[in-house]
Simulated assay, not measured.
Amino acid sequence: MKKLIVIAIILSSCFTLAYSLYYLLMILQSESGMMSAVKPLPYEHSDRIVIISQEQGSFMMNDIQKGARDAAETNLMLIDFWGVYRSNVEELIKQLDIAIASKVSGIIVEGLDHPEFDRMVKKATAKGIPVITINSDAPSSLRKTYIGSDHYQEGILIGEHIAAELKGQGIVGVIRNMTTPTMDDMRLKGLGEVFSKYDGIQMVFAADDHEITQPNMQTYDILNHYPKVSAFIGLPTESGNSIVQAAHARSQTKQYQIFLFDDSPQTRLLLRNGQIQAGLSQHYEEMGSLSVNLMRRWLDAAKLPLNSSYFTKISVVTSASEKESALENHTQ
């Protein structure tokens, strides 16, 4: 009886061992087949760059990303898009630090006039990671170059258009952007230079009060203190609707001329409806593609050094031109 039990245990053990060996062989064969079927990822050993934005999800960044993505594909580069959804200095600095720790090949980022930003660019440079600023600059940092609009020339261009529309006469209420003062300073410098040539044009601002920061509140404040205001210029992106509503709420009979520094979808709709007179196109897609192409040049050490800045196109978009464009698109 004992012999039968021993024989049964031995046979059972042999069967278990044989099954285990068979199962292991099948796994090895399966893995071998999978390995042979795996193909190298596209651009697996290519340079990896990251674009970090202060306004992730905005129409501006969507256009920048489109141009950058197309250029990255052409240059066989891997590209990631990071950013914050509301301007947040601390979060942007943190993402810069993470990008440096990730050992990316290059960083393209919206510049900040902030000592911590300069410190992070210096840290990246020390680790051999080039930093390029886009859309907004940080000229005091060790960034390699800046790609974007010349904000001073933006002020000149829209200022000349406003002066012509006002025929050299009028009070212009300026709606400021509290999150990007450096960019606004350059735009206001250009505006002021143009308006200084006209004795009949005066620039006015809302009270410098922390409770009066939103475009609609600034508009109300200007209307309260300057009832003879005839036009508004909005520096914050997509401020047009707030200015229009505030001005219309104050007076449904008086028509104010309204001008903006952007050509967002909201702005283009207001232009088509004749509620504002002109906007400014920044050509963001061009910024995105050019920034990636210049990063490729730097990484390849080709045609160096880079220029200090590469200014992209700016152009005035008027209500008439936008209506004409919309009509052409409708008839096609």
Rank of each mutant, 00 (worst) to 15 (best):
D113H: 13
H114E: 11
P115V: 03
E116G: 08
E116M: 13
F117N: 01
D118G: 07
D118M: 10
R119K: 15
M120N: 10
M120L: 10
V121S: 09
K122W: 09
K122C: 04
K123L: 12
K123S: 11
K123V: 05
K123E: 14
A124V: 06
A124M: 12
T125N: 13
A126S: 11
A126D: 15
A126W: 05
K127I: 02
K127H: 11
K127D: 08
I129S: 05
I129M: 11
P130Q: 05
P130A: 09
V131H: 05
I132R: 03
I132Q: 04
T133Y: 07
I134E: 04
I134Q: 03
I134N: 06
I134K: 04
I134T: 03
D137S: 11
A138L: 03
P139S: 11
S140Q: 13
S140P: 05
S141L: 03
S141H: 09
S141P: 04
S141V: 05
L142E: 15
L142C: 08
R143H: 10
T145W: 02
Y146E: 01
I147C: 02
I147K: 05
G148R: 09
G148W: 00
S149D: 07
S149R: 06
S149H: 01
D150K: 04
H151F: 07
Y152W: 11
Y152K: 00
Q153I: 00
Q153M: 14
E154K: 08
E154F: 03
E154H: 02
G155M: 01
G155A: 05
G155W: 01
G155P: 03
I156F: 00
I156S: 00
L157T: 15
I158V: 09
I158Y: 00
I158D: 01
G159C: 13
G159N: 08
E160G: 12
E160A: 05
I162R: 05
I162V: 15
A163R: 02
A164Q: 15
A164M: 12
A164T: 12
A164D: 15
E165V: 06
L166Y: 08
L166G: 07
L166S: 10
L166I: 05
K167Q: 15
K167D: 14
G168D: 13
G168M: 09
Q169M: 14
Q169R: 13
G170N: 10
I171A: 10
V174K: 04
I175F: 10
I175M: 04
R176F: 01
R176Q: 13
R176V: 09
N177S: 10
N177D: 15
N177K: 08
T179K: 05
T180I: 07
T180W: 02
T180V: 09
T180K: 06
P181E: 08
P181S: 06
P181L: 04
T182Q: 13
T182S: 13
T182P: 01
T182W: 06
M183C: 01
M183H: 08
M183R: 07
M183F: 08
M183G: 00
M183Y: 07
M183L: 12
D184H: 04
D185Q: 13
M186S: 12
M186E: 15
M186I: 00
R187C: 07
R187V: 14
R187E: 09
L188D: 01
L188G: 01
L188T: 03
L188E: 14
K189E: 12
K189N: 11
G190N: 04
L191Y: 05
G192D: 15
E193H: 07
E193T: 09
V194P: 05
F195W: 11
F195A: 03
F195T: 00
S196A: 14
S196T: 01
K197A: 12
K197R: 13
